[in-house]
């Protein structure tokens, strides 16, 4: 042992400084939500799926920005290239698979695991309540979904604007920015609430993931069949949980008729109300489920 070496037994030390309270607990759980879903401080395998989804969501945006920049330097092919580039609303069609992977993965990873591993009991034994727990988890889930629903169109907007291929005035830029922000939140909140609701019903992540996919695609297939084959009302499209938010995004950008005929015939107000109803209903289901959940009995 050198002269400078020391062995310190710090023992047990009291903590007498100020505590961060409920706000600190919510912030800590919010931060942990992001880290857990993205696989930080976890094995490599748990990083693969979230980062693959993010890459898939951003890759088209980067490619389209590159194409727009290329078109800007090649006046002869500019028109043809511009024709190939999607609008902001159409962009979601390119990355819908990545969004759905994220949707089907994130909430089950968080809620199911907490109940299955008993972490929920430890969380509720802290200054967190059931409400603040759900607030932190819900905010984290929304943030993660915004990463793939808001990030790529925002990247496109900023890059296109800097490249001179985007909005031509501040007013137009701000309008498009508002549309991008609202669209990202519309898709993120809808799928976030839906996935949290499904995840609140089971402790098995795989069941929740399969359930989310089944509900989304099942509702789409079923409503399409009932409308087209059984001649049900066109309003049944409002129960198409896969395409409802996507159609609403088109309306936000002032577009319509890109998904299918039944979607284009739906009125915007009922679409918006259905979106609010489904989102609020799912959030309510989560709250009711957790309000009655016994954790230490």
């Amino acid at each position: 042992m050198t002269a400078a070496a020391r062995i310190h037994d710090r023992g047990y030390s009291r903590y007498t400084d100020e505590r961060t309270g409920t706000g600190g607990a919510v912030r800590s759980l919010y931060r942990q939500t992001l880290q857990q879903a993205l696989g930080f401080r976890r094995s490599v395998w748990q990083k693969i799926l979230p980062f693959l989804s993010i890459v898939l969501a951003y890759l088209p945006a980067i490619a389209f920005v590159g194409m727009a920049a290329f078109a800007n330097t090649q006046p002869r092919v500019a028109a043809q290239v511009q024709e190939l580039l999607p609008t902001y609303a159409e962009y979601y069609g390119f990355v819908y698979a990545a969004i759905l992977v994220f949707v089907a993965f994130v909430a089950p990873e968080l809620l199911c695991a907490d109940r299955r591993t008993g972490m929920l009991g430890l969380y509720l034994a802290s200054p967190l309540t059931r409400g603040t727990y759900l607030l932190a988890r819900g905010a984290g889930t929304l943030t993660l979904l915004l990463l793939v629903t808001l990030g790529p169109p925002l990247l496109m907007l900023v890059a296109n604007t800097l490249n001179g291929t985007g909005p031509t005035s501040i007013g137009e830029f701000l309008t498009t920015l508002g549309q991008v922000l609202v669209s990202g939140v519309v898709i993120g909140a809808f799928y976030g609430a839906l996935s949290l609701a499904v995840a609140s019903l089971t402790t098995r992540r795989a069941f929740a993931t399969v359930g989310i996919v089944f509900i989304l695609f099942g509702s789409s297939v079923l409503t399409q069949l009932l409308i087209r084959r059984a001649r049900f009302s066109q309003d049944l499209f409002l129960a198409n949980l896969l395409l409802l938010p996507l159609e609403l995004v088109f309306r936000i950008f002032g577009e319509s008729g890109h998904i299918n005929r039944t979607a284009s015939e739906a009125q915007t107000l009922p679409l918006a109300l259905a979106w609010a109803g489904w989102t609020g209903g799912c959030a309510l289901l989560v709250w009711l489920r957790y309000r009655r959940l016994e954790v230490t009995r």
Partner: peptide, 13 residues
Amino acid sequence: RHIAELHGIPARV
């Protein structure tokens, strides 16, 4: 560490 933070201990501490 996470549980400590939940109970109001700042991250570094």
